[in-house]
Structure formats: structure tokens, C-alpha cells
Amino acid sequence: MNGQQEIINFDYINTIGQNNNDFLLKMINTFLDQCPIILAELEEAVLSEDWEKTVNLAHRFVPSVGLMGMDDVAIDLKQLENNAKNRMHLDQSMDLFLPIKQTCIQAIEELETKKKLFLI
């Protein structure tokens, strides 16, 4: 927003929902509810070097961000998941996570704005 490139893309969700606005709104609300929780859990897992939990959370989060059209975030989450699963490049995990977090925060803001437009 404010000249920034949009992160959210509703193409996928509109394909599945066949442009059903009620469905779209429900999905936005669920994402807005769940995203901060998963992000906090994932950050905690990476910080505490709990790689099993990192694998599970990253894997679980991929479809959610995919639904919102956040394909770049999905790619980063898969990288984080694979690294944690294979115990490779673990020292880069936080470097991978932070841009994910940053983009998700931005996506939340974007979604809040879109939601308001919806509700008008």
C-alpha cells in the first residue's frame, strides 16, 4: 500500500470460492486470526532451535499463505521447512524467518484495509 507492491492476491481464493464474497471474508478473518499465532509459534520454535516444531509449523503455514496468493512467502517457508527437516543451514533459519514475518505483517495490514473496503 501507499505505493508499495500488493502482497495479497485473491485469484486462487476467488477461483475456489467462485467469487463468493462471504467466503472470501471468512477466509480473510480466519487468516487474520491465525497468522499472528502461527508466526509467534514459528518464531519461538526457530529461536529455541526446536527444529521438529519448525518443520511442522512451516509446513502447516504454507497452504494458508498459498490461499492468500503469497507465493514468495510460501517458497521461503518451504525452504525453512526443508532446512529444518534436513538439519541444514540452520544458522540461516532466523534470516529466512524474518522476511517471512515482515511480509506477513504487511499482508495483515493489507488485509485489514481490504476488509474495511469490503464492509463499507
Binding site: M27, T30, Q34, R60, L67
Partner: peptide
């Protein structure tokens, strides 16, 4: 389905 967002989508479909 453990992802609540995807679970909601799944239930809708």
C-alpha cells in the same frame, strides 16, 4: 487438516 485457514477452505468446498 491442521492448518485452520486451509481447513476452513476445505469445509467450504
Amino acid at each position: 487438516e491442521d492448518d485452520p485457514v486451509f481447513a476452513k477452505m476445505l469445509k467450504y468446498v
